[in-house]
Amino acid sequence: MADKAESKDSPNKEEDDGPPIRVVLFKSDTCAFCPRAEEVLVETLEGFGAGLFELEIINVSKNPEAAEKYGVFALPTIMIGGVSVTGIPEPDMIMKMFLGAKVSAKRRASQ
């Protein structure tokens, strides 16, 4: 996964949970903190179960245009549902962001 410019996991979607939450990790080939951030992110997301998230990894060294589009230039940065965290995050932070995105998505769906 680390060598791919971009990778996507699209597990089976569970209708009751709504569409999967998009999680994006921005990393680079030279960023010393990125491998650990990726480990923390993947381990934390595993706790949510398949179908609830869609993980996209953007390697900025190979795809700088994608990072520029989002205005993300400090790495690692994790983006979940319109908010982001920079640096190696605590799992709690990822959980909060994920649950926040879930609540927002449900709210939007009910409107």
Partner: peptide
Amino acid sequence: DLSPSKEVTPVKIGEYPSFDLSGLEAIILN
């Protein structure tokens, strides 16, 4: 364009002192 006016730029809610600007370097050198 890395101005804050971009609509798709995520809102940063957390920062840990373990990051670098290698993304900025890659974008500029591109």
